[in-house]
Design a protein around this nucleic acid. Structure first.
Lengths: 234, 234
DNA sequence: TCAATAGTGTCTGTTAGACATTATGGA
DNA sequence: TCCATAATGTCTAACAGACACTATTGA
């Protein structure tokens, strides 16, 4: 057994640490997601990119800082914003932050490309070389979104206010990484009372036009489901 | 649309911030969970408690800091340890930390009571007045454990190496906050290949003795489940 | 007309929960 | 013996996935 430090030793004030707030913005992009990267000034004028970030301020809530950073990068507020954790290992950060507090933000499909030349959307499969900590943060962000998918209305934040059920299913397929069964998907959606039809239809090339729906949750699921034991890794 | 700051403005080094690492240790306690609190020295010699915590050090990974704090408080390593996020709102922290990075640790049932008089287990329903940020951290910790319950073998970390299936079901019922069906629970457990029986039995008062099992996952669940739409709150 | 996509009805295998029954110890 | 708990078999309703079919547009 280890020797135990006296509790009063822990009363010492925390040392001062360099802390950043880093934001992963995600938006649908074809059959995958894209994330917004900012050009990092580089003395050797190479192409270098990084996540939008800023130093944490003691006079500002972390959520507010993340929202500010996201608005600066996007020109608009993301449709959803949530913290995914603090990253404090030895991986390098572009601002030399000891600790980075990361947020993930969702942006509805069809967002305009960032106006300046300093930010751009990159498909997740085609991310350029990044500071190591940022690479880790992006991976964690995608995983966090996937894990919360059926508890939080994430998919609807990645779509405009009205959308087709095929659009919605496509988002779920991107996030889950696998195809879903169309009839089952719609049945589950119906019993969950999550969407309501509008009186508009959208024609997409050939084929029958699809009805547009809006997100309009009606019922509170009491979730009396059994245990699932979907345990991963050990 | 907001005026956008130049990207180079974000290149300024983050300011120095007081950061703490705070640990929520959880263990089963009757029909609920208990968390370990440490006595906070108070000048007016009132009873004041807080979570075990320490200042973050720049020469130490956050996970290592949490593990060290947990070992100091417990006298032993917790069976599981995971970060639950950074808390940086205005709520007061006992060390005046601007930002607290919180971890949750699981301790198997039957852990010995902490040796010194400075730490004690408190049932979740009976937590004394705490620094506001610590109250929030404990609530978040319990919620984080509940949400990860069917993705990570959390319940098994709250039990000793061998346990009865009734013990295991009890842990799930504590974490889910509702009763489960015994036969269904055992069927799901069987098809998941998560436990294997030992050749020991345990007699608990009257009734037939229960066979002891150990956690021994055999199969990797490929998880081809459909979407569930268990969306909460909006 | 054909091709392509939207949307739906039916069937079937799986599974969760209810219920009942047997098993096995202690009081 | 009686009681309490463990453990399991059977039935049924709910549901997910497969399949087929109709509907409706553009080319």
């Amino acid at each position: 057994m280890r020797e135990r430090t006296s509790p009063t030793a822990a009363k010492a004030a925390p040392r001062r640490t360099a802390v950043s707030v880093d934001v992963v913005l995600l938006t649908p992009h074809g059959k995958t997601l894209a994330t917004l990267l900012r050009r990092a000034p580089d003395l050797r004028s190479r192409e270098r990119w990084m996540l939008p970030w800023d130093g944490a301020r003691t006079d500002e809530m972390l959520e507010n800082a993340a929202d500010r950073i996201a608005r600066d990068a996007l020109g608009a507020a993301p449709a959803w914003l949530e913290q995914i954790g603090a990253f404090g290992d030895a991986r390098r950060h572009p601002g030399e932050a000891d600790i980075s507090i990361a947020f993930v933000g969702l942006v509805a499909a069809g967002a305009p490309a960032p106006v300046g030349g300093d930010e751009a959307w990159f498909p997740l499969a085609d991310i350029p070389a990044l500071p190591p900590r940022h690479k880790q943060v992006i991976d964690t962000a995608f995983e966090a979104v996937r894990l919360r998918l059926d508890q939080v209305p994430i998919a609807f934040r990645l779509l405009p206010p009205t959308f087709t059920l095929t659009d919605l299913q496509g988002i779920y397929e991107i996030l889950l990484g696998r195809r879903l069964h169309k009839a089952s998907f719609r049945r589950a959606l119906q019993t969950a009372w999550l969407v309501e039809p509008t009186d508009e239809w959208r024609s997409e090339g050939r084929g029958r036009p699809a009805q547009l729906y809006r997100f309009a949750p009606r019922k509170r699921r009491v979730s009396r489901r059994g245990v699932r034991f979907d345990l991963l890794g050990a």
